[in-house]
C-alpha cells in the first residue's frame, strides 16, 4: 500500500471513471489520490509513446505491425490520467507485435502489462509472483480498474 502524504495529495473523485467507463465488473475500488503536480517522468513518457508512430512494419525483425495511430492517441490519454494518480509510477513504453502501445509496470512482486487497443479499450495482464490466484488477464474500458491494480500493490 502506498503511503500518502496528505499535504501533497488530495482525494479525487473516482466516481468519474466509475460512471463513464462502468463495465459491471465487480472489484474493490480503493480510495485514490491525485498528485498536485505533474510527475517529472510524464512528459518524457508521453513523448516516447509519440515516437512509436515512427516505427516501420517489422521493426522487431519478427514481423511486428506498425503501431496504430489511434492506439497512440488513447495511450497518451490513458497515461496522462494515470500519471496524476499518487502511487502510479513511470511505466516502460513498448509496442506489441500487433501494433498496439503497451505500458508496463513491475515492482519485483507483481507485473502489469497494459495494451491500449485502437478502440480505446485496454487489455491488461496482472501477474502476482507470490500468489498466482491473484493473476488477472482481461480487457476493460474502465481506467478505474487499472488504477485499482496499480495503486494496491
Amino acid at each position: 500500500m502506498n503511503t500518502i502524504n496528505s499535504s501533497e495529495a488530495f482525494e479525487t473523485n473516482i466516481e468519474t471513471w466509475r460512471n463513464s467507463h462502468a463495465t459491471g465488473e465487480a472489484f474493490v475500488r480503493p480510495t485514490v489520490y491525485a498528485r498536485r503536480a505533474v510527475p517529472d517522468w510524464l512528459v518524457e513518457r508521453v513523448q516516447k509513446i509519440d515516437r512509436l508512430g515512427q516505427l516501420e512494419a517489422n521493426w522487431d525483425s519478427y514481423g511486428a505491425r506498425k503501431v496504430q495511430p489511434l492506439s497512440i492517441q488513447y495511450a497518451k490519454s490513458a497515461l496522462c490520467n494515470l500519471g496524476v494518480i499518487v502511487g502510479v509510477r513511470s511505466p516502460t513504453i513498448s509496442a506489441t507485435p500487433d501494433g498496439f502501445v503497451s505500458l508496463g509496470w513491475g515492482n519485483g512482486e507483481a507485473t502489469m502489462d497494459l495494451d491500449i487497443l485502437p478502440d480505446g479499450r485496454m487489455a491488461f495482464s496482472y501477474l502476482n509472483e507470490a500468489d498466482s490466484s491473484k493473476d488477472i488477464e482481461s480487457t476493460t474500458s474502465d481506467l478505474g480498474r487499472v488504477i485499482a491494480l496499480l495503486t494496491q500493490w
Partner: peptide, 27 residues
C-alpha cells in the same frame, strides 16, 4: 528504437520485456 525491449533482472543484468515474447495475432 523507441519501444523498450529490456528491463533489469532482479539478480543483475537485463531480461527481455514480456511484450517482446508475445505472439502476433494468428502467429
Amino acid at each position: 528504437i523507441a519501444p523498450e525491449s529490456v528491463v533489469p533482472r532482479s539478480d543483475g543484468g537485463f531480461r527481455a520485456t514480456s511484450v517482446r515474447m508475445r505472439l502476433r495475432e494468428g502467429e
